Simulated assay, not measured.
Amino acid sequence: MTGTTFQPAPDVRWGQFTTNIDFCRRMVHSGAALESAATSQLNLGDLSQVEHTDLYRAAWVQAVSALDHWLHREIVSRAIAIINDRPTPRPDRLKNYAVSWQTVEDMQSRSIDDVMTEHMTERLGRDSYQKPDRIAEGLGYVTQKKQGQIWKEVAQLLNSQPTVEYVKQRQTEIADRRNKIAHEADIDHLAGARRPITAPETSATIEWIANLATAIKAVLG
């Protein structure tokens, strides 16, 4: 009888995150191709109305959103797993998580998993997991580690092994730029024009977010 090799269940949430990050990379490649075509001598039609930098901005926003979306799904999924595993100590934030009486009544006719997944998805959906402090607050539902310990371990896992202060500052700057793009059309009001953006800096941002998420995933275990 031939033995079978155990195949672990695919991590759907992580798979979606990496797919989203790949989409961001392709947007940058598309923008770079348009940028190159606009300055070439090839007859590719009228590219005067094409703004390649908008693809870089879209990729920037999408990359931050990919991180935010993955963290929300990961936190809810891990929280439900902890609730179901009674021997596992509850992190303080999860232990103190409050629900309404209506939610308790819903559990009489529906599974606790379904009710709590919906409840936590809706409540945590009001939070933004883009900046360091908010990310660590969200992770507080599913780990006993304090904020300082989380970022210390994340920094140690990043390839360049930057300081905790650098990691938090870098992620804050990325999130701030995302907000300027999404909410202010990336306009520098003093200059009266959009802020410059390039393919290399956008690609570097995407890779930073991919590596940051990988480190967070490892810290959670």
Rank of each mutant, 00 (worst) to 15 (best):
R57G: 05
V61H: 04
A32C: 08
T19M: 08
L34E: 04
V76G: 00
V28W: 04
I82Q: 00
Y56V: 04
L67M: 15
I82G: 01
T88A: 06
R73E: 01
A37H: 02
Q108C: 13
V12E: 15
E35Y: 10
A33S: 15
N43P: 06
A58V: 06
S36G: 14
S48W: 04
D92M: 14
P89W: 11
E105I: 14
Q49D: 11
M107F: 02
S30Q: 06
A9C: 04
D68I: 02
Q108Y: 13
R93F: 04
A59N: 00
I75Y: 00
L71F: 03
R13P: 02
E105S: 13
Q49L: 10
S65D: 00
L94T: 05
K95F: 08
E105N: 14
I75E: 02
L47K: 05
A37Q: 05
D11K: 00
D85Q: 14
M107I: 09
N96F: 11
I80A: 07
V104S: 12
Q16L: 07
T19K: 12
W70L: 10
V28K: 03
Q62M: 07
A66K: 05
S30H: 08
V61R: 00
L94G: 00
R25E: 14
R86T: 09
I21M: 08
T39F: 07
R13I: 15
V50A: 12
F23T: 07
R25T: 06
M27D: 08
D92W: 15
V99Y: 05
R26T: 12
V76T: 02
R93V: 04
V104N: 08
L47P: 09
L44N: 10
L71I: 00
A38I: 15
I82L: 00
P89V: 10
L67C: 13
A81F: 06
S109A: 15
A38N: 09
D22C: 12
Q62I: 04
T103C: 09
E51M: 11
R73V: 01
W101A: 09
S30L: 15
V12K: 14
A63T: 01
I75D: 01
E74Q: 06
A9T: 11
H69D: 06
P89G: 06
T103G: 04
Q62L: 06
A59T: 03
R78G: 01
A33T: 07
Q62C: 12
L34V: 02
D68S: 05
R90S: 05
D85Y: 07
Q49C: 15
V104T: 15
Y56P: 03
A9H: 11
R93K: 13
L94I: 02
D11S: 03
A38E: 11
T39A: 14
R73T: 02
R25D: 11
S48M: 07
V99R: 05
P89K: 10
R93P: 07
A63I: 00
A32L: 10
Q41I: 08
L42C: 15
L42W: 11
V50Y: 09
I21K: 06
K95I: 03
L34N: 08
R110P: 00
I82D: 00
F23Q: 13
V99M: 05
I75M: 02
S36P: 03
F17C: 03
I75S: 03
R73I: 03
E74D: 06
A38G: 12
